[in-house]
Each structure stands twice: as structure tokens, then as C-alpha cells.
Design a protein around this nucleic acid. Sequence first.
RNA 1: GGCCCCAUCGUCUAACGGUUAGGACAGCGGGUUUUCAAUCCGUUAAUCGGAGUUCGAUUCUCCGUGGGGCUGCCA
Length: 447
Amino acid sequence: MQEHQKIVTRFAPSPTGKLHSGSYRTAIFAYLFARKNHGSFVLRIEDTDRERSKKEYEENILESLEWLGLEHDKFFRQSDNILRHKEILKQLIGGGHAYISKEEAKDGSGIMKELVRFKNPNTDVSFEDEIKGRVTVNTKELGDFVIAKNMDEPLFHLAVVVDDFDESVTHVIRGEDHVSNTPRQILIQRAIGAPEPVYAHLPLVLGLDKQKLSKRKGALALTDYRDLGYLPEALLNMISMIGWNPGGEQEIFSKDELVASFDLSRVQKSPAIFNPEKLDWYDREHIKRLPKALLLGYVKKFLPESILSKNPADENLESFIAIIGERLTAFGEIRKMSERGELLYFFERPEYDAALLLGKDGSAGETKDYLSRAAAILESLSDFSKESVKNALWGFATEVGRSKVLWPLRVALSGLAKSPDPFVLSAYFGKDETLERIKIATELLSR
RNA sequence: GGCCCCAUCGUCUAACGGUUAGGACAGCGGGUUUUCAAUCCGUUAAUCGGAGUUCGAUUCUCCGUGGGGCUGCCA
């Protein structure tokens, strides 16, 4: 590779399943490396296996990468290049590097097929891996490996080499599971006179069971995380830190910061386990950093129709999310909270349970009295901020026993056993609504 | 089985021969507190084992052990 050559990396998934964190990590590193070096990032769909490749998976991959902000500079499908692959195939056969082999199909059908096999020179092949160092493999055991099912159906090794060559890919950044494929691909490169790219084989991402991440073992697709309400910036940040870190003690990174600090030489050699709990933490941290407008957008997106149909004002929603936000790890929690009935009272008056209003050991008469006195204090209050409400009520509550006042007051506002504190809720509802709810609750106790 | 790779708290990791082995997540304990959260403070916890090399090994070498990957007419 010449010094002046433009850096080109690629992400080459096969559309045989939804994109999950393992392949996503590969995509991130290839992307970061390209951006860091002002190079370009190619997305190539490896769909030479016609049986297993599915359009829906290709769409899922595209959708996932877009959602995560890994935009590509070039896109193509391997199947679009079949003519070119065929041309190279002919060239290889003509040059004596490959030959057509008539064999019985392995599927037991008994029919004869014309496979194309690569004539293996049986040498040691070594390459310098950016992460693993020098890797040497004796290719003798490989035999004359198959590079095409027939002249019109090229296979992985051939297609990869030809496409990387045609796209001037300078850095092949991929998973460690490809290490043993590399010698075969280098052999083909040499036969067609293609330059050898720089290789960087990434350690694998493992699941909690310490096995290679896979959908079958429950690895979630990136689109699943999206649907669960995780932020793409949290996924990007978290997954970037699996098998790599810039060395300092900073944990939270924006995409730009990741690009700026990315360095292949700091990539870990050993496999790493994907820890969902840490993702939750990253998500919370990124929610905290979200600009207001975006935050509002997410909230609206995840709020159920039962609440949306009440047409809450943006301003109302903003104070709502300020309260609820610290209670969730991903926006999908909003749905769950709503299903548990923990949200509706923010938007309409709750049904009261008299027993709940009394708390552990309050009597109806006493509780009613305390609620009335609290209401009287609030009545005279002009500043209805949570601090102001707290200051106004604190003395009285402390005097008679905080739980005796604050518990029924909180239940009067939320109708629930669990909710934010009465000061926060009072500030949220404002004076009129707060007093109205207290009044309704008080009346209930009179019956 | 064969070939290849890897090895620091439970997990993600820092340390590039000299540190009381640091940070983060989780855990635990406590403060705040009317409930649920949130938040703050504190704290438990690791160099896989054995030989070398060296004045000195987490760091270098070898062996063992453990883990992983590959071993397709998949990618």
C-alpha cells in the first residue's frame, strides 16, 4: 500500500439474519477507522449464497446502520458483480490458477456438477495482522478449495477478493472468525495480481454464556434495541468500548469523540462479553445528555395512544419527562410504566382508594384533617415550585408526623402506592389542579 | 482430532519491567428520604498455574491449564 493511497474500509455482512451487536461492532470499527483517516467506508452485501440471502435481512442491515449513524460512502451487492467475478474466474482458469472440476453434487442428488477449484500452490502463507501480529498458516491442508459452484455462481473467497480489489479496499477489518480464511484469500490475490490489503482481525463479541454472539442464543438485533427505546448513541458508545478503549478513564463518548480517538493498535486481542447491564447504564447517561427537543420526540414516540389522545401540550410533556426520565433506562420503559398504570394520573384525575389514602395507620378523621390543613397552607401559596411547596408544608408535616401528612397528600395527587413525591407532583400539577385533587380525596374520606 | 488465536476484579478495561495493580458496570454498606426512583459517599473483588530471563515481572520466554475461533459446493 502506498502512502498517498486513500484509506478504504468496508463492512461486508451477509444478509442471512438481522444485524446484531457482534457484526455491528465490526461495522463500527471499520467505520471509525475510515473516518479517522479521512477515508471511505464501503457497505457491501455479501449475497452470493442465493439460498440463504434474504431481502428483508438486507433491509434490516441498512436500517440498523442508518439508525446508528454509520453512513456509508458506497453501497453495492456482491450479486451485482457476478459478471466481473466470472471474468476473473476465466482469467484464473486460463492462467492455470484454477480449474473446472466435474464432481458429484454433495447434496446426494447424484447429479454431476462443474465446480471451480483453486489450484493450491501448497505454501506457507503469512500476513501481518494489525491486531494479532504475524500470522502464518500452511495452506497444504486446504487442498484445492472451491471458489465457485459453477461459472455463474462465485463463492465467498473469490467474490471477496475481487470486490475488495475493485473497490481498492486498503484495510480489511473483520471478525476473528475470518483469520483462517485469510490465507486462501491471499492466495487468490496473488493469482490475480491484486495487492494485499492490511488485515485487522477483531476479537469476537461473546454473549453472557461466553459463546460467540448469535441470534439463536438470544442476541438481540440492533433494531430490537431501537424498538425497546435505546438510544443509538448509547449503543454506539457501549459497543465501541467492547474490545477497545482509548486508554483514559472517560466512559461517555460521542460519535465524533470516538472517531477522533479511535486507534486500531489499542484493540484488545481477547474476546469480550457483551454486558446488557452496562448498556442500560450507558443509555441512562445518554438520555441525561439528550437535547430537550430530541427528548420530547422520544417521549412522544413511546407514549401510548391512551395518553397521546389527550393532546398534552409540549410544555406539559417536558415537565412530565423531567419527572419520569430519571426512572427509566430506555424509552420503552414508558410503555411498561403506562401498562402498569403509573402514568395516566399525570394527565387525568385518578380513582382513589380510601384505604390507600389512609396509609399504614392513619384514621379517616385524622387524615382528612391533615389534608385540609395542607390544602389551606397551599391555598395561600403563590410560588408553586417544588421547593416552595416543600418549604410551606415541611414545618406542619414535621410537627404532626411527616408520613401522616405527606403520604396521603402524595396519594391524593397520584392515586398510587408508588409515585414521585408530593412536592414534585404539586409543582407539576400547579395550584388549581393540586388543590382540586386534594379536595376530591378529602371528600372521599368524609363519606 | 487437526490448525490458529487468546488469558488483569463477576463483566468491560488501565498499566506498554519498578503503581498501595487504577477506573467503569454490577454487588454490598450508608447518607438523603413519606412511597418508588434518582442522587451522594463509602466498600468488597483480579494479574490462571509452574518454570525461567531480570536487581525487579501483570508486562519478556517456555511448558501446562482453561477459553475461543476455524476445520462447507455458508459468509
